[in-house]
Design a protein around this nucleic acid. Sequence first.
DNA 1: TTGCAATTATTGCATGTGCAAATATATGGA
DNA 2: TCCATATATTTGCACATGCAATAATTGCAA
Lengths: 147, 147
Amino acid sequence: MTDNERQRLAWSQLLSAHALTLRVIEGKLKAAGQPPLAWYDLLLELERAGGEMRIGDLAERLVVERYNMTRLLDRMSDDGLVERRPDPTDRRGALAVITPAGRARRGDMWPHYRSAIDEAFSAVLTGVEAAALTATLRKVKAHLKRD
Amino acid sequence: MTDNERQRLAWSQLLSAHALTLRVIEGKLKAAGQPPLAWYDLLLELERAGGEMRIGDLAERLVVERYNMTRLLDRMSDDGLVERRPDPTDRRGALAVITPAGRARRGDMWPHYRSAIDEAFSAVLTGVEAAALTATLRKVKAHLKRD
DNA sequence: TTGCAATTATTGCATGTGCAAATATATGGA
DNA sequence: TCCATATATTTGCACATGCAATAATTGCAA
């Protein structure tokens, strides 16, 4: 097998491993009555940013299209987990702000999400393998973000 | 950092690397006037299986829900790339069969898809890294399929 | 300053996906 | 054999996403 074939094979494995793992993890979340993964990621990102972030930045950070971020925020906002606030520094833009209910919801979700990841994904990886995976995927991401 | 943290970090990298790479690759396909990735995968799978496969098996193999496979086949069938045939061994089921136009379409897609993978993904990986990635992801998949 | 292109967020419409129910057929046990 | 249960696929309806167009604002250059 040539290097090119090895690389393309790795890509196809990435696709199918992703699909399979995601299906299992989302299934566990749903079975536990929890919201989808994307909600967790969004809430976590907001907390890490200190509670608020520009909508466009959030979309870019989470690799979601802007118009889908608009709608994701609509839904989460209907649930009281986030709210919009005009950006004082640029009146075109808006900030997404996490609410106390949003912080609480992320806290509720975490144990379910954690155990789902641990069972579906972590269980078969050594720490060394996990670190290698992280390093490799970071290279790919850095490459794509350069453009 | 503990092993658990390493593993969870690897999972989050898998999610974002997947999203970013897929966005780029699908974008290149679309820009080249080609159908989405899922069409390629389906056509390839059928060719590998000798030209036909049970719909449910195809869905399982491609990690797609059955009802979505039904609809994917509807669309591809509208384009003349596949057709349905009753399964002689089980009249509940149906076979998806690749047509000559389907084989031709896969042939047309491949150079575009190949160069997209090579540019977006392969470019930054050594053969050794790719092989390690494949091995790791295969373990994850094997683990999930066991249940 | 004015005017024009670029940026931010949103929305209408078409398309794709998830869920639960429907249809048709198969399988195994009384 | 007959019936209850399981399996394969499809479909109606609600919800989510992609695309192209819109509105509001910014920034820059004439």
